[in-house]
């Protein structure tokens, strides 16, 4: 199926693409057909800078279980860093 399921959000940071590092301003998260991964559907993430053109993009296509583990890992690391983040905010 073509799910069309797409979530978009603003982000701040940097990513390394085909032509080196660039600032990212937008992200798309979607569950749909991959371009490259050998699966019918994957959890896809695009980190983008539309102001720099369509090629300013870092893309990943992940197996759904792997995507969930990645999300949990991100949250675990952020939770562990909560003290540091709080100190930095003071």
């Amino acid at each position: 199926m073509c799910t069309y399921l797409t979530d978009t959000l603003a982000v701040r940071g940097s990513a390394k693409g085909a032509e080196g590092w660039f600032a990212v301003s937008d992200a798309s998260v979607y569950f749909d057909h991959p371009v490259h991964a050998a699966a019918e559907h994957t959890l896809n993430i695009d980190l983008r800078n539309p102001a720099a053109g369509p090629a300013a993009r870092v893309a990943v296509e992940l197996d759904p279980a792997a995507a969930r583990r990645l999300a949990e890992s991100i949250l675990k690391v952020l939770d562990s860093a909560a003290g540091t983040l709080a100190a930095a905010a003071r």
Binding site: D26, V35, D46, R48, G53, P54, A55
Partner: peptide, 17 residues
């Protein structure tokens, strides 16, 4: 219109967003 001359996958990502 969204992505003149871009690679097809980058153009699709732009159009989707």
């Amino acid at each position: 219109r969204e992505a003149p001359g871009a690679a097809s996958d980058d153009a699709a990502a732009t159009a989707r967003a």
